[in-house]
Simulated scan of single mutants.
Amino acid sequence: MDEPTMKLHWSPKSPYVRKVVVCAHELGLLPRLEFVRSVAAMLKPNPALMADNPLSKIPTLVLADGRTLFDSAVICEYLNDLGNGGLFPASGGARWRALRWHALGDGMLDALILWRNEREREQPLQVLIDAFDLKMRASLKQLDGEAEALGNAPFSIGHVALGCALGYFDYRFGMLGWRELAPRLAGWFEVLRERPSFQFSEPVDG
Rank of each mutant, 00 (worst) to 15 (best):
Ser11Glu: 10
Ser11Gln: 12
Pro12Thr: 07
Ser14Asn: 05
Ser14Glu: 05
Ser14Ala: 07
Pro15Trp: 02
Pro15Leu: 02
Pro15Gln: 04
Arg18Ser: 03
Lys19Asn: 12
Lys19Pro: 10
Lys19Cys: 12
Val20Asn: 14
Val21Asn: 01
Val21Leu: 10
Val21Glu: 09
Val22Ala: 06
Val22Thr: 05
Cys23Thr: 13
Ala24Gln: 13
His25Met: 06
His25Gln: 12
Glu26Leu: 15
Glu26Pro: 10
Glu26Arg: 15
Gly28Cys: 05
Leu29Tyr: 09
Leu30Pro: 08
Leu30Asp: 13
Arg32Ser: 14
Leu33Asp: 14
Glu34Cys: 02
Glu34Asp: 04
Val36Ala: 07
Ser38Pro: 05
Ser38Phe: 05
Ala40Arg: 00
Ala41Gln: 04
Ala41Ile: 02
Ala41His: 03
Met42Ala: 14
Met42Trp: 09
Lys44Leu: 07
Lys44Pro: 01
Lys44Cys: 04
Pro45Arg: 11
Asn46Pro: 09
Asn46Ala: 10
Pro47Ile: 00
Ala48Thr: 10
Ala48Pro: 03
Leu49Pro: 11
Leu49Cys: 11
Leu49Gly: 14
Leu49Met: 09
Pro54Gly: 01
Pro54Arg: 03
Lys57Arg: 14
Ile58Trp: 07
Ile58Asn: 06
Leu61Asp: 09
Leu63Asn: 03
Leu63Phe: 00
Ala64Leu: 07
Asp65Tyr: 12
Asp65Asn: 15
Arg67Met: 07
Arg67Lys: 08
Thr68Ala: 15
Phe70Lys: 02
Phe70Leu: 06
Phe70Pro: 01
Phe70Gln: 04
Val74Ala: 08
Ile75His: 04
Cys76Ile: 11
Cys76Asp: 10
Glu77Gln: 14
Glu77Ser: 13
Asn80His: 11
Asn80Tyr: 07
Leu82Arg: 15
Gly83Pro: 04
Gly83Asn: 07
Asn84Ile: 00
Asn84Phe: 02
Asn84His: 07
Gly86Thr: 00
Leu87Ile: 08
Pro89Lys: 13
Pro89Cys: 12
Pro89Val: 13
Pro89Glu: 12
Ala90Met: 12
Ala90Pro: 08
Ala90Ile: 07
Ser91Val: 14
Gly92Val: 04
Gly93Leu: 11
Gly93Thr: 09
Gly93Cys: 05
Ala94Thr: 09
Ala94Tyr: 10
Trp96Leu: 11
Ala98Cys: 08
Ala98Phe: 05
Ala98Arg: 04
Arg100Ala: 03
Arg100Met: 05
Trp101Asp: 00
Trp101Ala: 02
His102Asn: 13
Leu104Glu: 07
Gly105Cys: 12
Gly105Pro: 14
Gly105Trp: 15
Gly105Phe: 13
Asp106Trp: 01
Asp106Glu: 14
Asp106Asn: 12
Asp106Thr: 08
Met108Thr: 15
Asp110Ser: 02
Ile113Ser: 00
Ile113Ala: 04
Trp115Gln: 01
Arg116Gly: 00
Arg116Trp: 02
Asn117Lys: 03
Glu118Met: 00
Glu118Lys: 00
Arg119Pro: 02
Arg119Val: 04
Arg119Ile: 03
Glu120Tyr: 02
Arg121Phe: 01
Arg121Leu: 09
Gln123Leu: 05
Gln123Pro: 01
Pro124Tyr: 09
Pro124His: 08
Pro124Met: 08
Leu125Lys: 09
Leu125Ala: 15
Val127Glu: 04
Leu128Asn: 03
Ile129Leu: 15
Ile129His: 11
Ile129Val: 15
Asp130Tyr: 00
Ala131Lys: 11
